[in-house]
Simulated scan of single mutants.
Amino acid sequence: MNKFLRRTVLAALLAALCLTLAACGGSGSDDSAPDTIQDMAKDDTVQFDYGDYLGIWSNGTGDYDSFEVEPGESGEVRWLLYAGANWEYSGYLQYVEEYGYVYAYNDHNGTAYRCELDGAELTVAEIGTFTYGGSGTPDDFQDVEPEPTADVSVLAGDWYQDGDVDGDSRLEITADGVWTLLDCTGDMDAMMDYGELIPSQEEGSWFARSTMLDDVEYNVTVADENILYWGGEYDCYIRSQG
């Protein structure tokens, strides 16, 4: 075989090898897939078999103890995250074809977390690794997910402690459930804390989850349309009618 022919054959083999490697890289999961996606768009047209994800995943390695996945309405696959017996977050699973991974979208903060299965272990990025504990049935799940359509806008307004506009504390709540707790004892009102309202299982009850302070959450009970009780001391706040 002459030198020219050998070079031609070698070039053809290298080209074939490159095509093979390119084909392999274009399938399966993308190693560069991000751990999280902000404000991931929901796509109801995605076709994917989530069967391997369904069930109760326990013994979490991070701050959370269990990650529970079950079929939801309208073909959704819903998940709930618990710390001990306390429900913390919930959302839905969605396969993202661009990266070749399933992501767990959090309804409460707009972040989607990459999920990775490895046998009997499920790793949810930035949340923890969980061990498969069984397929479960709806009765096995710790709680029913709070009603996602609860209307927080009915609480919008300025609320004064004990109804005293010149009192020590004021609570501001916006129509989208963002709250600010203010100290009114000085010359100017000072912000003590702020966060978002999340519905609980009980009608008329909410969780006020702090954004400013780590691991802080207040219980909120609505007595009537203009009276609510806030926090562990159940301070009374009355909405201003002005």
Rank of each mutant, 00 (worst) to 15 (best):
E145R: 15
A156H: 04
Y160Q: 06
G136I: 12
A150C: 06
T149N: 12
D158Y: 04
Y160E: 07
L155H: 05
D140I: 13
P146W: 10
D162A: 07
W159H: 07
P138W: 08
G163D: 04
G133V: 08
T137I: 08
E145N: 06
P138N: 06
F141C: 06
P138F: 08
T149G: 00
D162W: 01
G163M: 04
G163P: 04
V144E: 14
D143Q: 11
A150P: 02
G134R: 09
Q142E: 09
V154H: 02
P148H: 07
W159M: 04
D139G: 02
D139N: 13
E147H: 07
E147P: 00
E147L: 09
L155C: 01
V144I: 14
T137L: 13
D139L: 11
S153P: 05
F141G: 04
P146E: 08
V144Y: 05
T149R: 03
S135G: 13
D139A: 15
G134S: 11
D139K: 13
A156R: 03
D139R: 12
D140E: 06
D162T: 02
F141V: 13
P138A: 14
G163R: 04
V154Y: 03
A156D: 01
D162S: 08
Y132H: 14
D140M: 10
A150W: 05
S135C: 00
P148G: 05
D139I: 07
G133N: 15
T149E: 13
D158E: 09
D139H: 06
G134M: 10
Q161D: 04
P138R: 08
D143G: 01
V152L: 14
G134K: 11
D151G: 01
D143T: 14
T149H: 04
L155K: 04
D151E: 14
W159S: 04
E145S: 13
P146F: 10
V152Y: 07
W159D: 03
T137M: 13
P148C: 01
Q142R: 15
Y160D: 07
D151I: 02
W159T: 04
F141Q: 05
G136L: 08
E147C: 05
D151T: 05
V152N: 01
D151K: 02
D139E: 15
G136V: 12
Q161V: 09
W159L: 02
Y160W: 14
Y160V: 01
E145W: 02
D162V: 00
D140L: 10
A150D: 12
